[in-house]
Design a protein around this nucleic acid. Structure first.
Lengths: 197, 197
DNA sequence: GTCTATACTTCGATAGAC
DNA sequence: GTCTATCGAAGTATAGAC
């Protein structure tokens, strides 16, 4: 999908600024607020320069997604190799920025098919990594709740983090405290505070 | 904010067609595909007519949301008063259309603040209704899983239905079967097949 | 690499004929 | 109630000077 020509060194400063500006716009006003004009203004350059680095808007969106996905995978890897991987990973998935960005790209993928393949691929890879971490942490013992397989847990946890962030953004928080407490108690049982390193 | 003037009888046929067309566009291509021109074309009328019924695009989006919210509340009420309310409500929340529409409006609310208040209000009301049904169905006995309060359950269920629908749309379904089975087994314990009417 | 200038499209919205 | 016609703003994208 993305145009074939790629301009500007991968490590161009301006290129990074444009990606920053686009990401910021998406976070603050949603993907529909992203236009070459607005991105340029936010980055302090002229609109034509946006098209110099990113021939089409799809290229720009994909670059933002790509960078975000890489960073997200790095942070996930760090969390997964920490002392209490489940706690660390859950904490990660409750961060505002990442979750909101994924929401935006998911919504955007309905409007721009070029984005669709990228996010689907990323979601599948991420899901696999989550499963690996969970299975490793459970070590064959499994959860203490009947039917709560690792597969069920990751989907439930993914959905919960989406709901918590999404509703918090709207100002709706009824039930959030209980849901959060439930997860944390479950995590504490699966991964006790004094767990061996 | 919605413009003050309101034209076209509440029960105008054309008005309904425009709302239909807008909803269809949102479902199939996302909210960004909605413009007065595209809506008009989809409804078989001229663009100016869209602005006759809905002076601003905010008015149009709000009308679509309002109608959807009303229908959703009606269907929820029917499900809640059925023989097995929990099963019926869960089935409802897994329907594609409604969930996708809520997703679209949630994303849209980041870009159009006029939509924000409407969806926040609806979400809060809906959450309360869900809690009422769940508390009634549990009848003080509570779930058999420690920490799984009604409040926790509704948030978990809301998030799960979002994740299931969203990922299914992307073609990502790893873990879905387990998650679905977990919920259904839980529902069957809370609300056995031969439950009294 | 960054700009000016510009072509062309689509958008929201309104005026006014019918 | 529906249309034609139109305005001005904003969108994507490109050509070409510097």
């Amino acid at each position: 999908m993305a145009s074939s020509r790629r301009i500007g060194t991968e490590r161009s400063k301006t290129r990074g600024l444009l990606i920053d500006a686009t990401e910021r716009l998406m976070l603050e006003e949603g993907y529909a607020a992203v236009s070459s004009r607005r991105v340029a203004a936010a980055a302090g350059v002229k609109p034509a320069l946006v098209h110099y680095y990113f021939p089409t808007m799809d290229d720009l969106f994909l670059a933002v997604f790509q960078r975000g996905a890489e960073r997200s995978l790095e942070r996930f890897a760090r969390a997964a190799s920490s002392g209490r991987p489940l706690h660390a990973v859950w904490k990660l998935s409750n961060e505002l920025r990442g979750t909101v960005l994924v929401m935006e790209f998911t919504a955007l993928s309905r409007h721009r098919k070029a984005v669709r393949a990228a996010i689907a691929d990323y979601a599948e890879r991420f899901r696999r990594l989550q499963l690996d971490v969970l299975r490793e942490a459970l070590g064959g013992t499994g959860a203490d709740v009947p039917g709560l397989t690792p597969e069920a847990v990751v989907v439930l946890a993914t959905g919960l983090s989406i709901a918590l962030v999404q509703e918090r953004e709207l100002g709706v928080t009824t039930g959030h405290a209980d849901a959060q407490r439930f997860v944390e108690e479950l995590l504490d049982r699966l991964e006790p505070p004094e767990a061996p390193g």
